[in-house]
């Protein structure tokens, strides 16, 4: 589905991504783990096209998308659940959801407004409220629902459980697990190794702009303590 090959990204002079290689197979959930400031969000932004890489290839569905504008990349079936949620605060919940709605699939797996309201009933109750009036948990549901309504084949999720109360965080992890079971391909950025191991098939660990370790969830389960001590601290 997605493959990054020696991706280098800069902010002005600062060389943030220093040759990132990673792969997300169709239908799998891959986690990208790393501490604050290691380049996880920059990786996500390089993929969606917000910060186009200076060098390297990003192959999505067999096409090199590096350098394409975000709208073209999204049109190819990629969606973003960004860090900090980035809800359109002056739009209503309903408007936030329908803004990017695209009916690309016709089968039962396609998302429409009703289906997203079924997935997140509290959004239906709040449909006329403006984005800025929602709680953190509701905003996160909205960010996920907004992404689903573009009917993507691949979703980038950047720390979707960040700053949420434990109850709501658990509920959302369950929803992501359901998405995974439905066959969605996801690249999930996490700081928490437990969440990553619970959801992902494969885990990459990022440090200072490079992938320093990678392995299947089962494999990393065994190395958990070493990883916590030496890489994530």
């Amino acid at each position: 589905m997605l493959q990054l090959d020696e991706v280098h990204t800069y902010y002005g002079d600062s060389h943030v991504l220093q040759g990132v290689n990673l792969e997300v197979a169709r239908g799998s959930v891959v986690a990208l783990l790393g501490q604050n400031g290691m380049g996880k969000t920059t990786t996500i932004h390089s993929i969606i096209g917000f910060t186009p890489p200076a060098r390297g290839k990003i192959i999505f569905k067999g096409i090199n998308i590096s350098g394409l504008p975000p709208s073209s990349i999204a049109l190819m079936g990629m969606a973003l659940v960004p860090q900090g949620r980035r809800i359109f605060r002056s739009l209503t919940v309903r408007e936030n959801l329908i803004l990017g709605y695209r009916k690309t699939k016709t089968d039962k797996t396609a998302y429409d407004l009703e289906r997203v309201y079924e997935l997140f009933p509290s959004l239906k109750l709040r449909s006329a409220n403006r984005g800025e009036q929602l709680s953190g948990g509701e905003q996160q549901m909205l960010a996920i629902g907004r992404a689903l309504l573009t009917n993507p084949d691949f979703i980038l999720m950047d720390e979707p459980f960040e700053g949420l109360a434990p109850g709501i965080s658990k509920e959302l992890r369950q929803k992501v697990l359901e998405l995974k079971k439905s066959g969605m391909s996801i690249l999930l950025v996490e700081q928490n190794i437990e969440a990553a191991l619970q959801l992902a098939d494969y885990v990459y660990i990022m440090s200072k702009g490079k992938i320093v370790h990678g392995g299947s969830a089962a494999q990393l389960q065994g190395e958990k303590d070493i990883i916590k001590r030496f890489i994530l601290l």
Binding site: F50, A74, L80, F88, L99, G100
Partner: peptide, 15 residues
């Protein structure tokens, strides 16, 4: 209106 809030995020919705 969405663009006034966050135009980058609008582009990520294929607009």
């Amino acid at each position: 209106r969405a663009g006034v809030d966050d135009k980058e995020m609008v582009t990520a919705l294929a607009i």
